[in-house]
């Protein structure tokens, strides 16, 4: 590739420095998989399958955003599954009958509180994050179980059902939501003061502190946003599935980490691009649709998830991501 074309690519995608190549690769492979999957099964590759994939992705993309921020600062949030379940339960129980903005905000506030407590445990008490969030995962799940005594009360609020099952101009609203989340998430992570400081903290805590960033506040903030995203996902899931269950978050626990890691973010923090998470989400959902169509079980699907994670973090490490990115963005370096 010549320096000129590289330069023009870089100029046309100035904000995507770094892992651009890898992300484009993921999107590209996904885009190829969709029509190619017709060869696997004639029912695949149609607009409706693509649409279904994107609709399902809209929820994982949201959890992935929060998890991504926590991973960005070099921690892990294992509590999201039970936050999803708890907010799902509260959504049907409190919002189902009489939707009100105050109740809606109350539910979100509870989630944010859980996130803040996670963050305080990690920063002030210095409990390793996976222990802290695993503990809060158990506690929150216990609260949800205790509150419901095993049976989830209430009904699905109508506005959530409309949101997740409706269409605007023939396009399912969750797809619009997906696009919106991708754009907003990308901007928050890359361009806001908050996002920048998270990168700084994850890249190098000592430097960030020397540069005047309040490291602990940023980490607490990341956990709070993660919980908030899990809560919103819980609500979307209620709308999508038409109700809440105590296990509704379980399917998001590992995938939320998987999409971030497969999306090219460093599990060590400091590196990552939200669009990578978005690409990885759609990619993995496409793969699982494909696997389902092939008649392969849920088990193989999970197995392949695991292999992909190992492939990305282990064998390729950051090399593929950075090399591919470099090919596209700065071959003229030397």
């Amino acid at each position: 590739m010549t320096a000129i074309s590289a330069h023009s690519v870089r100029r046309s995608l100035p904000a995507l420095s770094g892992q651009t190549g890898y992300i484009l690769l993921l999107f590209g492979v996904t885009a190829l998989l969709m029509p190619l999957s017709r060869f696997v099964s004639p029912s695949l590759g149609s607009w409706s399958t693509v649409s279904a994939i994107l609709v399902i992705s809209s929820m994982l993309v949201l959890v992935g955003f929060g998890q991504g921020l926590v991973i960005l600062v070099g921690e892990l949030d294992l509590s999201i599954a039970s936050v999803i379940a708890l907010t799902g339960v509260l959504t049907t129980a409190w919002l189902g009958e009489s939707p009100s903005l105050v109740t809606f905000l109350e539910i979100l506030a509870i989630a944010v509180l859980i996130g803040v407590l996670n963050g305080i445990g990690v920063t002030v008490l210095k409990v390793p994050s996976f222990i802290m969030t695993l503990g809060s995962q158990l506690i929150v799940a216990g609260i949800a179980l205790g509150y419901t005594k095993g049976t989830v009360p209430g009904t699905t609020p109508r506005f959530l059902g409309d949101l997740m099952l409706g269409k605007v101009l023939g396009v399912p609203t969750p797809i619009l939501l997906l696009i919106g989340i991708a754009v907003v998430g990308f901007v928050i992570q890359r361009y806001t003061v908050f996002g920048r400081r998270l990168y700084a903290v994850g890249g190098n805590r000592a430097t960030a502190a020397i540069a005047g960033v309040h490291v602990n506040r940023m980490i607490v903030g990341a956990f709070a946003v993660s919980s908030l995203c899990a809560a919103l996902t819980g609500m979307l899931l209620v709308g999508y599935g038409g109700g809440a269950t105590l296990g509704m978050g379980d399917g998001y626990f590992l995938p939320s980490i998987a999409v971030v890691v497969v999306g090219g973010s460093s599990i060590l923090g400091g590196r990552g691009n939200y669009l990578g998470t978005v690409a990885a989400t759609i990619f993995l959902q496409t793969i699982s649709t494909l696997i389902q169509a092939l008649g392969i079980s849920q088990g193989w699907q999970t197995f392949i998830y695991g292999c992909l994670i190992i492939a990305v973090v282990g064998l390729l490490k950051r090399d593929l991501a950075t090399k591919a990115g470099r090919l596209l963005t700065r071959p003229g370096k030397s």
Binding site: S17, G18, V187, Y191, T192, V193, F194, R196, R197, Y199, A200, G202, G203, N204, A206, T207, A208, I210, A211, G212, V213, S266, G270, R271, G272
Partner: peptide, 30 residues
Amino acid sequence: KAEGIMPGISTLANITISSLGRTSTLGVAA
């Protein structure tokens, strides 16, 4: 490497990290 640069973000973002108050509008540093 250990205490100077913040890897993974642009040089520009590395320079402005201490002065984001001045270079951003409503929290967006674009």
